[in-house]
Nucleic acid binder design. Structure first.
Length: 587
RNA sequence: GUCCCUGUAGCGCAAUGGAUAGCGUGCCGGCCUCCGAAGCCGUCGGUGCGGGUUCGAAUCCCGCCAGGGACACCA
């Protein structure tokens, strides 16, 4: 927000250091961390330590001495109200009126675009969700979908051109088993609603039948053979039933507000994966052990000349020559760069258990000479488990289905809306319940670090109080309500002509941070940064709401506060939008 | 055995190597005659252990302890 002034100050500090025979400092600015303080700060401890060279000295005192000198040299630069040297820190306090106007104007001028960075003209791909067709979609699958979607939002807001990519697992033993079960026991049936749930039930049924009668495996193998021979009947059945799953996924993505630009399918890469494996064998990177009944492997540590075991052994092709997931991943990685040669990054949002797998895939491709391999990056996240550290598994039935969660969250939200806002039309109530329900589901998946396990339990999933999406939505609604009741256009840009109160200072401060936090969240691939900011914004707004009357205030204050409320509303809406959460107009 | 992740308040989580470690929840107690109480205010309570690096460590390094995960033909 004060980039120009900041740069000028940096130059002045550099000049000061040169003039005073000090080493060139590397200045890192951060927000003054105390509430009530309002501006940016930097410290001179490193510089002080460096200034002593090999000699010992009192760094604290020296840092303070430098800070004092610089503070004096700077005076009070334009845009700032105070410059202070405190314990080795240089604190630059923004001029309240000017800063307020600048932040509020920026937000209201830019509207939905506030927080977005300059376009970088760089393309990145994010692959996420990767659901298996012919299986249930449960809460464990939700994290990749939600995390990936928000990472796309963040990267886009940070200025990248994002290709949102899905990679459904549409072929494999699970599909073959499903087809066998369907053909034998359900031929001709078709689901009309809750498609994914129905597909999942049939899959679970297949597993159960095979467990109870292992001799049926022979029939399954027969179906696999038919698939391998591309038997038209099986291929047709596969295509038809696969589409049911995909339709079901589309329905859920629509409910969740998640979209994709590009679909790749597992089944597309059996051949191209094998091509790469052949190439690896030809180049001597992979060892073909099929003659002795083994698979095709890449002994990565050996090929890289590592003594330890870091990459272990990568199995690239089954001993019978059929493709496995790893084979297909080789083909897929290449295809992405064939389709999008300009990709600066190719991200894979996949759970942490596959970390080694992706290291192996990327390293193998690098050894194979593909320069783009280094642009591939696995974005690991921890799984969603059930209480007692139970991993959700479609096979064992210990799962919470997404359909059920969506329905429960929606119902719970509807119940609360009916209680709080009986006068709204049923349609509005439904709309609000959807926004609140989805928000309540998404927020907990985004508000903890990617590397931390999310434990799902119904009680906290349906708890709408405290640090959660409905809290932020509620603050938004309150802001909206004030503006509606004001019953007048938002006043034109103005310089506040009164002393800002503490809650106003805090609120403006947080609003002003959004653009930086977007960059930071995108850089570190951490939605958490935005969930935190959104919550803090809402909290600061609630504080403001309780302490600063708007509509009843005298005109000068009212006009200024109306603009602030509008800016806060916009900042909250934009933060929520980044998180894929809808801000309802009432709730 | 090798490698990765995680240990912060009863529980769930924050905190670019920086100043005074924050929030939610839970317990207890307050606040609707004031822009919406899905809200606000108050109270209790914490960096797994031991070294090291640094002016400064929850954060980086080493060791230990505890939990989770990955390691040749599953995805």
């Amino acid at each position: 927000m004060f980039e120009v002034e900041q740069r000028r100050i940096e130059e002045q500090i550099q000049a000061y250091c040169t003039a005073h025979d000090l080493p060139a400092p590397t200045l890192r600015w951060k927000w003054i961390p105390f509430s009530g303080q309002w501006g940016i700060s930097t410290s001179f401890f490193q510089l002080a330590a460096a200034s002593f060279g090999d000699q010992k000295g009192n760094t604290q005192a020296k840092a303070q001495e430098i800070a004092l000198g610089i503070a004096e040299d700077l005076g009070t630069p334009a845009g700032f109200s105070k410059v202070e040297a405190v314990k080795g820190y240089l604190n630059l306090t923004f001029d309240p009126a000017q800063y307020t106007r600048r932040v509020v104007d920026a937000v209201l001028d830019e509207g939905e675009g506030y927080g977005q960075g300059m376009r970088r003209h760089e393309q990145v791909m994010v692959e996420f969700s990767q659901p298996n067709t012919h299986k249930a979609f449960h809460v464990g699958h939700l994290r990749s979908a939600i995390l990936g979607d928000v990472l796309c939002n963040l990267l886009d807001a940070a200025g990248y051109d994002v290709v949102r990519t899905n990679y459904p697992g549409d072929m494999g033993l699970h599909v073959i088993r499903w087809l066998w079960n369907y053909k034998k026991y359900h031929m001709g049936e078709k689901p009309d609603r809750d498609i994914t749930k129905w597909m999942g039930n049939l899959y679970a049924e297949a597993i159960k039948r095979l467990e109870q009668n292992p001799e049926l495996d022979a029939e399954v193998r027969e179906v696999y053979k038919q698939w391998d021979n591309r038997d038209p009947e099986i291929v047709a059945l596969w295509k038809e039933t696969r589409q049911w799953s995909l339709d079901g996924f589309d329905d859920m993505y629509a409910k969740l507000g998640i979209r994709f630009d590009r679909y790749y399918f597992n089944s597309m890469f059996e051949d191209s994966g094998r091509e790469i494996v052949d190439e690896l064998i030809r180049k001597g990177i992979a060892d073909d052990e099929r003659a002795t009944g083994g698979p095709v492997v890449v002994k990565l540590d050996e090929k890289l000349g590592l003594t330890g075991e870091k990459y272990h052994v990568f199995v690239a092709l089954r001993s019978d020559g059929t493709a496995l997931y790893a084979t297909e991943d080789l083909g897929l990685a290449r295809q992405k760069f064939l389709d999008y040669p300009g990709l600066a990054k190719s991200f894979y949002v996949v759970d942490v258990r596959q970390s080694l797998h992706f290291q192996q895939v990327f390293k193998t491709l690098e050894l194979d000479g593909y320069a783009w391999a280094v642009k591939c990056q696995h974005v690991p996240y921890e799984i969603v488990s059930l209480p007692g550290n139970v991993v959700m598994s479609s096979r064992e039935g210990a799962i919470v289905l997404l359909e059920d969660l969506l329905r429960e969250a929606n119902e719970r939200a509807l119940q609360v809306v009916r209680e709080k806002n009986p006068e709204l039309t049923e349609e509005r109530k439904q709309e609000i319940a959807r926004a609140v329900g989805i928000g309540a589901i998404k927020y907990p998946m985004l508000s903890r670090d990617n590397t931390k396990v999310v434990t799902f339990d119904w009680q906290s999933a349906l708890d709408f109080n405290g640090q959660a999406a409905p809290y932020i939505q509620y603050a938004y609604v309150r802001a909206n309500s004030i503006l509606r009741k004001a019953n007048m256009p938002i006043p034109a840009s103005l310089l506040p002509e009164y002393e800002l109160s503490q809650p106003e200072v805090a609120l403006i401060d947080l609003i002003g941070r959004l653009p930086d936090e977007v960059q930071s969240a995108a850089r570190d691939l951490r939605p958490l940064v935005i969930t935190n900011l959104a919550y803090e914004l809402a909290s600061a707004f609630n504080d403001f709401y309780g302490q600063c009357p708007v509509l009843q205030a005298e005109e000068k204050i009212r006009n200024s506060r109306l603009r602030l409320v509008a800016a806060a509303r916009q900042a909250m809406a934009n933060s929520l939008a980044l998180l894929g959460i809808t801000a309802p107009q009432a709730m």
